[in-house]
Design a protein around this nucleic acid. Structure first.
Lengths: 286, 286
DNA sequence: AAAAATGGTGAAAATTATTTTCTTCCTCAT
DNA sequence: ATGAGGAAGAAAATAATTTTCACCATTTTT
C-alpha cells in the first residue's frame, strides 16, 4: 500500500464526515476515481464538487487535478512481489481481475520456461525439421494450440495438418508411417481422443511428441519426445486460460528454434508467404 | 520504450505539420508535458489549444485529459528493469532463444495490462452480456484469437460465431442488427477483410468492439468500444507471436470479468458444459 | 489556367470543469 | 437562548477544454 492511499487510510478518521465518505469511496474505487471529473466523483460518492475540491486542498494538493494526477501515477506502480496464482471468484473489481490474470499468465510463462528441457526441445526441433508429414492432435483449447502450430508450420512449407474432428484425427493417424511426426497437445495429458490418435500414430511408426502439463500422464508416457507446460495450482477453476498461454509459449520457442537453427531453409519461405498475402490483397484492389 | 511514446514516434511522420511539431515536443519533454494544461502545452510547443485537442482525439484518446493521464501513467514506470523486446536471428543457442521469447511474452503481457482501459473493458463486458448474437472477425493469427473467444462464449451459452472465411464474415455481418455485437480482432488494425466485416456490422446497427495494437488504426476508429494489446517494437519480424499472447490475455480478462460480474448467470452453465463433456466420454466407454 | 474541393489551422464561441464565495444549517459552549 | 465556529452545498466566478467556424493553402478537377 503506497503513499496517497495509505495516507488516506490513516487520516480518514480525523476528517470531516463528508470527507470520510469521500476518502472511503476513493479507497474502494481508486482505479475508477482517477477517470472521473470532480463533478462525477462528487456525484458518485454522494458529496459535492466543492467538498471534493476542498478535500484535495486540505490534503495539500494543488487542486483536484493535481490530486488525480498523483493518484493515477501511484496506481500504476507494479505489483511489488509477484504473488502466486490466484483464483477468480464473483464480485471482484475489474482491476483485481486484470491483476490476477496478469499474475497467472506471467507465472505460467516464467515457470514454463524454467522447467523446459532444452534437450527435448532440440529433439523436437530435429524431428519436425526432418519430418515428411506432421499431424497435430488436440481437442478444444488444446486444439487451438495445435491449430496455431499448424499455421506456423505451413508457413514454412511443412506438410502439417490439424484435425479438430476426433474421427479425422484417427483416420489421419492411420496413414502415418516411419519418418512422420505426430504431435499431441493436451493440457491434462489424458484427453481420450488425443490419446487414441497418438497411440495409433505410434503403432504406425511415427515419431511422437507430446505437450502436456508437467507430471506423469498417459499421453506423455506414450510420447517419444516430451514437452511440458507449467502446471497450475490444482483447484484453479479456469486453469485452461493460463495453460493455453503456456502451451503457445512452448510452441513459439519450438518454432523460433526451428527457424533459427535452419535459418536459410525457412526464412525465405516465411518472407515469401508474407509478401504473397500482401500482393494478393493489392490485386483485389484494396 | 512503451506504449504511447512508442506510438507517437512511429506515427509522427504520418501526421500533419503542427502535429509533428507537437509530437516532437512531447517526445522531448514528456515529463514536463504532463504537468501542463492544454493551453500551456500549446503555447510551449508553438501550436494552439485546438490543435492539441484534435491531436489527442486523432490518436483515439477521449480528449486531452485522457491523453495526459495515460501518458503520466506511462512515465511513472521507469525504464523497465527487464530487458526490452528482442529480435530473433540465426544461430542463437536454444537457451538464448527461450530467454528472448520469454522476455517478449512477459513484456507483452505487462504492457498490455498496464495500458488497458478498464472503463472500456467494462463497456465491452456489458455489451457482450447484453448481446443477442455475437460475431467474431479475425484473419490468420487473429482468427485464432477470435476462435478462442468464441469457444469461451459458447461455453457460457452465448450465441457466438467466428468465421475464418472472409466471405462468410461479410455474409454473417449482413444479418446482424441492433442489440448484436461484432467483435473484430486484428493486430495491425488494418486487415481489410476484418475491416469490411466490421463496417458492415456497424451499418446494420450492431455494437462494434475492436482489439488491435495500440495507436490510431482504421479498425479501432470504426469501433464503438476499443481495446488494445500492447504494441511491439517495429522491426520485430515475428511480432505476431507476442501480439497473439497479448490478445489472448485481453480475451481472458474480458471473459473472466464477464463471469465475475454475472457469476450466477454463467458459472452454472460453464460447470454444466464441463460435466456433460465428461459424461459423454464415459458413455462412450472410456 | 481557373474553379472547386479538400484539409489544416487558429480565433472565437460554446461547453464543461474547477475553485471560490456566499449562505444555510447544525453543534456546542456560554 | 444565543452566538461563534465550522461543515457543506448552491451559486458565482474563473479556468480549462472542446467545438465551430472562417480563412488560407494546397491539390484536384474542369
Amino acid at each position: 500500500m503506497s503513499g496517497i492511499l495509505q495516507a488516506l487510510r490513516e487520516q480518514q478518521h480525523h476528517m470531516n464526515p463528508k470527507e470520510q465518505i469521500l476518502a472511503q469511496f476513493i479507497l474502494e474505487h481508486a482505479h475508477e476515481a482517477v477517470h472521473l471529473s470532480i463533478t462525477e466523483l462528487a456525484g458518485r460518492s454522494g458529496t459535492s464538487a466543492a467538498t471534493v475540491s476542498r478535500f484535495c486542498r486540505s490534503l495539500l494538493f494543488k487542486g483536484y487535478g493535481d490530486f488525480r494526477m498523483k493518484l493515477a501515477a501511484e496506481l500504476v506502480q507494479p505489483v511489488p512481489a509477484k504473488p502466486s496464482y490466484q483464483d477468480i471468484v464473483a464480485g471482484n473489481t475489474l482491476h483485481s481481475i486484470a491483476q490476477a490474470i496478469e499474475t497467472n499468465h506471467l507465472r505460467s510463462i516464467s515457470d514454463t520456461t524454467r522447467q523446459l528441457d532444452l534437450t527435448e526441445v532440440q529433439r523436437a526441433v530435429d524431428a519436425l525439421h526432418d519430418a515428411r508429414r506432421i499431424d497435430l492432435y488436440g481437442m478444444a483449447t488444446s486444439g487451438m494450440v495445435a491449430y496455431d502450430c499448424q499455421q506456423k508450420l505451413v508457413r514454412i512449407g511443412k506438410m502439417a495438418q490439424h484435425w479438430a474432428d476426433s474421427h479425422m484425427q484417427i483416420t489421419s493417424a492411420t496413414s502415418l508411417g516411419e519418418g512422420d511426426v505426430a504431435f499431441a497437445f493436451s493440457y491434462s495429458g489424458e484427453t481420450p481422443e488425443t490419446l487414441d490418435a497418438l497411440l495409433c500414430a505410434k503403432e504406425r511408426g511415427a515419431t511422437t511428441i507430446s505437450l502436456t502439463k508437467f507430471g506423469a500422464n498417459r499421453i506423455s508416457q506414450l510420447a517419444d519426445i516430451r514437452l511440458y507446460a507449467s502446471s497450475l495450482e490444482e483447484g484453479m477453476r479456469r486453469g485452461d486460460m493460463a495453460s493455453r498461454i503456456a502451451q503457445l509459449h512452448v510452441v513459439d520457442i519450438l518454432f523460433t528454434a526451428l527457424l533459427s537453427l535452419h535459418f536459410d531453409d525457412y526464412v525465405p519461405l516465411l518472407e515469401q508467404s508474407f509478401q504473397e498475402v500482401k500482393k494478393y490483397r493489392k490485386e483485389k484492389g484494396r
